[in-house]
């Protein structure tokens, strides 16, 4: 273990703890990834392109990423608002509301899925008021967006909240003394400070939404080419024993998740560097 350790430490258990952690990481995480990589590598380029560019697959990928993007955008706005109100204003029951924000993390996705479907169905609690207005939510792409907003709601709130809390009051006081009005202070003092966290939170919400399955399949209606999401394509291909097809779609989704992960890391590195310079 001396080859790996950079510095001597009096604390014992380095070899044991690292060895154990690596063993489980290998078994639970890396081995399945290797299986996917191995299967994907036997596919070949032409077969891969063919699989991925099939109209149904393409439509589902477009839907998954497009709906996730819209949901992330809505959450960027609303999540920011929620964080803002929770940090800066007081109202009765604030602690309770704050705890409730994590509900989408705690509530199993399938439960959220059937609940949302019931609410937005044409005869549901909200659906019955939307139907006469010509707005159909359940069994349409709009329903998918609603479900994705639900599951990815906490990400933006929970990343922006601590940054807003840490913002020094003196900055705003200084800006006020210098003659700035509230809107100018928001745009030029507060917003730039919160922007990295807002972007990170939105990226995390987007990543989560692209892969989401449980909450979506009930409300989506799963109409091919219209409201069929990419994870569902993987499952249906698997059910038809089309392992190659399922793998190809999975590889595309995985590539996108890694890209977003990379973006998030880049953002955090950038923020850390900027703070370091301060």
């Amino acid at each position: 273990m001396n080859l790996i350790a950079k510095r001597y430490s009096v604390l014992p258990g380095f070899g044991l703890s690292l060895g154990y952690a690596l063993f489980w990481l290998g078994l639970i995480v890396l081995l399945p990834f290797a299986a996917l990589a191995l299967t994907a590598s036997t596919l070949g380029w032409t077969a891969f392109i063919e699989q991925v560019s099939a109209p149904r697959v393409l439509a589902s990928l477009q839907l998954s990423f497009g709906a996730a993007l819209i949901a992330a955008a809505v959450n960027a706005l609303m999540g920011f608002l929620v964080a803002w109100v929770l940090v800066r204003y007081t109202f009765p029951g604030k602690r309770f509301v704050d705890a409730l924000i994590d509900l989408p993390f705690a509530l199993p996705t399938a439960v959220a899925g059937i609940a949302l479907t019931t609410i937005y169905a044409p005869n549901g609690w909200l659906g019955r008021y939307l139907e006469p207005l010509g707005v159909k939510v359940a069994f349409t792409p709009l329903g998918i967006v609603v479900a994705l907003i639900f599951v990815s709601l906490p990400f933006v709130v929970r990343t922006v909240q601590p940054v807003l809390e840490d913002l020094e009051k003196e900055l705003e006081e200084a800006a006020t003394c210098l003659g700035a009005d509230r809107w100018q202070i928001f745009r030029r003092v507060i917003f730039p400070a919160v922007l990295p966290a807002l972007l990170t939170g939105s990226a995390m919400a987007f990543a989560r939404a692209t892969g989401e399955f449980g909450s979506v399949i009930f409300i989506a209606g799963n109409i091919p080419l219209v409201s069929e999401i990419a994870p569902l394509i993987i499952i249906s291909k698997l059910e038809q024993f089309d392992v190659a097809g399922a793998t190809a779609v999975a590889v595309v989704m995985l590539a996108l998740s890694f890209f977003v992960l990379f973006l998030i890391n880049l953002l955090q590195w950038w923020t850390a560097r900027r703070h370091g310079m301060k």
């Binding site: 952690a21 990481l25 995480v29 890396l30 081995l31 399945p32 990834f33 290797a34 299986a35 996917l36 191995l38 299967t39 990543a207 692209t210 892969g211 989401e212 399955f213 449980g214 994870p231 569902l232 993987i234 499952i235 698997l238 392992v243 399922a246 793998t247 999975a250 989704m253 995985l254 998740s257 890694f258 977003v260 992960l261 890391n265």
Partner: peptide, 21 residues
Amino acid sequence: TLIDLPFSVSPVVAGLMYVLL
């Protein structure tokens, strides 16, 4: 980073990986 990996994978893809394995 590797420990966090399962969070950035769609659950369906995770299931698929085990089926492949």
